[in-house]
Design a protein around this nucleic acid. Structure first.
Lengths: 93, 93
DNA sequence: ACCACATATAGAGATTTGTCAATATGTTTT
DNA sequence: AAAACATATTGACAAATCTCTATATGTGGT
């Protein structure tokens, strides 16, 4: 656990907004195109793009470009990092 | 996993601010009085109070009043809830 | 009852964040 | 090359958040 406070906060920003939780809920079913996410949420396309940037920055979501489409999925590695931090707080280090 | 998006976001607000991460870092060592936390942080007493309220609301921290002192500690139960959510996203449900 | 101390609340200012409309970039098809 | 489409970026505004000073509340000791 060498994470500094600022970096740790960035990771968990993924989970502290309602819209992003809904996005993660959808991605839980598997990789989705941005357009599919947009259909499911009551936000505009630029707002979705903004949230996806936050999620990518957090490391909790992976992005993959295929042609004109952008595919997003949950990053097992990112989730693991978040879990490791919670374990660390539990004193299970 | 019956958590609604708003409630989930509230839980994780505990981890998405730099000052709160530092507070959790200190509480990892065990229960601490508010005055001890205040010494360790470069913030005013009302600001600390505000962050402690956020942490209590998230369920990640427990509070206990003893005389004029307020003691805070990490809530194993709260942490467990956060971890369960991350597990859920991993598809390990 | 009063004073000293620890913490909480109220209110205000500054910063950050979420949101949108408008526009730019990049890709595919015709 | 142009048109159509998917996504990203810009710039502006509103809402939420962080921070402070000032003040209130509550507790223990004198």
């Amino acid at each position: 656990m060498e994470l500094n406070p600022k970096k740790t906060a960035v990771i968990f920003k993924a989970f502290c907004d309602e819209s992003r939780i809904i996005i993660l809920q959808i991605l839980k079913d598997g990789e989705k195109c941005a357009c599919r996410l947009l259909e499911a949420l009551n936000i505009t396309q630029p707002t979705l793009s903004h949230h996806m940037k936050t999620l990518l920055d957090s490391g909790i979501v992976n992005g993959r470009k295929e042609g004109k489409w952008m595919y997003y999925s949950i990053s097992e590695e990112g989730l693991k990092k978040a879990q490791e931090y919670l374990d660390y707080l539990k004193g299970e280090v």
